[in-house]
């Protein structure tokens, strides 16, 4: 018998096994529960129940709108931040970037509660303006996730192309639209991926900031699991998975996550 020789590619075997057991198998279980009833027999009951229920559809739409709004806000605020951070003329030390992610060391629940207390202190109460406070909480929490991919993409941007654009007579807005924006597109897409779905599915921020007056799709999944209604909960999770799959399919050619990460530490 031939002795199995060590090859470098074998190093990924434990990694692959880990993913099969703890990432892929669990997701298959969600699909299983989504299409069975409480007795374990195959059923479209959850499907019919969800799409026939006006409240559920409304919940999904509100979550998607809040998710989209937060994505736009985070990118609008974060894009200039990332542009300034990569410009050596403005920011000399790479440490400033870290300032944007370090608050994560103070746990996100604690930060969100602190944000609520701050807004409370200046008279904006979640009880009165649940949508406003929830949106503020979302931007606070997800802004770093938008800045990071934008920053990493801009670091790799070829500055000569921008120079060339000016040399060829383009104005500043023209250069931005025709040169900088297309070059940073992978970063924008990655930022959107890091913000949209997590916002839609978050339940802690809406709970804490909106004082339970706002329900998002995440709240609904959590509630169903709290009540041990696995099948209903799994079906909503299955919808989230489908949305992610669709978004991944739509952006498959424009982005690679591996190219837009790292470079911070």
């Amino acid at each position: 018998m031939k002795k199995l020789r060590f090859k470098r590619k074998h190093l990924s075997i434990p990694y692959l096994l880990f993913f099969i057991f703890f990432v892929i198998l669990p997701l298959l279980l969600i699909v299983y529960y989504a299409f069975t009833d409480a007795n374990g027999s195959f059923s479209f009951g959850n499907f019919v129940e969800f799409f026939g229920n006006r409240n559920k559809i409304r919940l999904l739409s509100v979550s998607a709108i809040i998710g989209a709004l937060n994505t736009v806000l985070c990118i609008l605020i974060g894009y200039p931040v990332a542009m300034i951070l990569v410009n050596k003329k403005f920011v000399k030390s790479g440490i400033i970037v870290l300032l944007f992610i370090m608050p994560m060391w103070i746990n996100f629940v604690l930060r969100t509660a602190a944000t609520r207390d701050l807004l409370y202190a200046i008279g904006i109460e979640g009880g009165n303006y649940p949508y406003l406070t929830t949106m503020i909480g979302m931007v606070y929490n997800y802004l770093p996730f938008a800045i990071l991919p934008l920053y990493s993409t801009m670091l790799k941007m070829d500055k000569n192309l921008i120079e060339a654009s000016y040399d060829l007579g383009a104005t500043k807005p023209q250069t931005f639209v025709k040169t900088i924006l297309p070059m940073t597109k992978p970063g924008i897409i990655s930022a959107a991926q890091m913000v949209f779905m997590p916002t839609m599915s978050s339940f802690v921020i809406s709970d804490v900031m909106g004082e339970r007056k706002i329900q998002l799709i995440g709240n609904s999944i959590q509630f169903n699991f709290d009540q041990m209604r696995w099948n209903e909960g799994s079906f909503i999770a299955f919808i989230m998975l489908s949305i992610i799959a669709i978004l991944m399919f739509l952006t498959r050619n424009t982005t690679k996550v591996e190219t837009v990460r790292g470079g911070v530490w």
Partner: peptide
């Protein structure tokens, strides 16, 4: 498959493990 946990909603990852 490496991208799955990054792109997946955290709550979906969480409940999938619970299940």
């Amino acid at each position: 498959i490496t991208q799955i946990p990054v792109l997946n909603a955290e709550i979906v990852t969480a409940i999938s493990l619970t299940i």
